[in-house]
Design a protein around this nucleic acid. Structure first.
Lengths: 332, 332
DNA sequence: CTGTTAGCGCTTTCAA
DNA sequence: TTGAAAGCGCTAACAG
């Protein structure tokens, strides 16, 4: 059996033993400077002798300061997020905060549910790549400190990884290699990053005089990438930019499965650089800024917490093209 | 500013709107069966219209049930853990629990700090691949429900991924290919999995009449794998089994950098199958059971919570060899 | 400096 | 089936 909650000494018990009022015990722990030195000592001695530890939950309920924040992501297992989570954690440790992690499984309803469940025990939240409709996000943001990653909503503090810059470079790279039409393998419909990347492809295509087609993949997953290979080939493109590295990786496999040599017969570019040089051939991709995004989002959130007010911050992280070995001259 | 009273509706506000007592609202959420069906509906309707969600913290203070559990891992960014985390999350959602995530950064002191910080707000914790000394784990386990993953301590409920079975198969595979001496590239010194894998290599080597050498890698990381390549080559082995896929992947790169063709001149086997077929050549490895481990650990923890007592459960998940393309006949 | 007095938001007897 | 009332453990005005 584990010691029941009853067995944990409360502030009152300590107060009785020390012969002071409960508030004095409270102050001995939170503002010892307000108290007589020997009073503090007496209280601390009593506390120590009983093994008293302040109850985090009671304190949180009373102060509204939870010492917790929540980070909600669509899929922990998507390699884009772990570095972001890790970076956020690192900052939180310094601040003596705890981290709630939520996994929405790419489902807006699940995400909404998580926000609700977590709301009562955190001081603020970070929504990474939120799939929620803008209106829901605004509602939540009005109720509590909230910072967005890769979601661009005016009036809500947000950190954006501008893959547009990198995607632009990718298009130039492709144009330089003589590709005339490129396919964009799209990601989740309600993903801001997806819209941004699709837009960057279109804009660059116009600027560079290339043709482009959009080939939708259901989810950002390896399997979806494999499945989309046929459609990509059918599109008449000689190169593809995929929503992310995971999808690109699947596409690579799908292409290989159809006997299409990369980069000889077809060029592929990913996004987010999460696979490193692990694919074969090593994937040309757009750089990854997710750790920086995690850190920046946390700093922003802490600022908001400190000031108790929302500034309309829009923090943008630039990306660039990382050329590896899945791109080459267009086939003739 | 985030208005305090306006922000999150409380049970009282819902009660007023629904024209019932606070306790009735409470019951509508916790024991609807105790109430008149239409009362429940009226309350729920009011709650929905205000966006009311029960406050976890207040509930916890009142009931002593926190509805939170903590999962501590050495490194979220190590691909072994995200699937495990995801699996745990999925179960928790069903149970309406929230998940605290702790990242110890492979540092026992940090892990200890996390346990302390989290202890006061969770009903139980799961320590995955804990780097803590046994004595610290026992202390923590005595104070609260605790389940271990990949750490074998008698008397504490634990889920073990038996990579021993898979490593044994790997050794047989290598022996069948004519390799006479194999290197084990070891992982973190205080990792149970590492000890287990090293032991399995030794045992199989004895059984099969092979020679084996242990080559230590500092951390389970790509970089460490690259760095260890020279030592592996120097060891006289013609094949290596690495502590995990990430290390194996680095080793592959290190070998390639030295002009050693794999599998022609050297065979490599990983562990945990976290890279899928993403490496080149696709990595022969030992299968991954981490999602099952996450799910099992959570079930175990919930059992402990329900029974309020510790059973000495030792739940073992078997693994097997996944042959891909980094192993071949020993060079002559 | 320290005690008094209200709560924080919710659950849970005990009555009605 | 529902309401009234008493806390859960702690903090925070407000006195003194």
């Amino acid at each position: 059996m584990y010691p029941r909650s009853r067995s944990t000494p409360t502030i009152s018990q300590v107060a009785t033993l020390a012969g002071v009022n409960r508030s004095t015990v409270s102050r001995a722990f939170t503002r010892p400077d307000m108290l007589n030195t020997e009073t503090v000592e007496r209280v601390m001695e009593a506390a120590r002798s009983m093994g008293y530890v302040p109850n985090h939950t009671a304190r949180a309920l009373s102060t509204g300061r939870y010492g917790n924040i929540a980070l909600i992501v669509p899929d922990v297992a998507n390699p884009f997020f772990p570095p972001l989570i890790r970076a956020a954690q690192k900052e939180l440790d310094r601040l003596d905060f705890c981290l709630f992690l939520g996994n929405s499984d790419e489902d807006p309803r699940q995400e909404d549910r998580l926000v609700g469940r977590l709301a009562g025990q955190v001081e603020g939240m970070i929504l990474a790549s939120s799939r929620l409709p803008e209106e829901r996000i605004r509602t939540h943001a009005a109720a509590r400190p909230l910072v967005l990653i890769n979601r661009d909503i005016e009036g809500i503090p947000r950190v954006l990884i501008d893959s547009g810059s990198g995607v632009g470079e990718a298009m130039e790279h492709l144009a330089g290699l003589g590709h005339a039409t490129v396919a964009y393998v799209s990601g989740p419909a309600n993903s801001w990053s997806n819209r941004q990347r699709r837009g960057a492809v279109r804009k660059a295509a116009d600027r560079l005089g290339l043709k482009h087609v959009v080939v939708p993949a259901a989810l950002p997953s390896y399997e979806a990438g494999v499945a989309v290979a046929a459609a990509v080939l059918r599109s008449g493109a000689t190169a593809a930019i995929a929503f992310d590295d995971v999808t690109a990786h699947g596409l690579l496999a799908g292409l290989a499965g159809r006997g299409v040599p990369v980069p000889g017969a077809f060029s592929v570019i990913g996004c987010d650089d999460v696979l490193g040089a692990a694919t074969y051939p090593p994937l040309t991709t757009v750089s990854n800024r997710s750790p920086q995004a995690g850190k920046a989002a946390l700093s922003l959130l802490m600022e908001v917490l400190a000031s108790r007010s929302i500034r309309d911050v829009r923090y943008v992280l630039e990306t660039h093209l990382v050329v590896r070995r899945t791109t080459a001259t267009a086939p003739t």
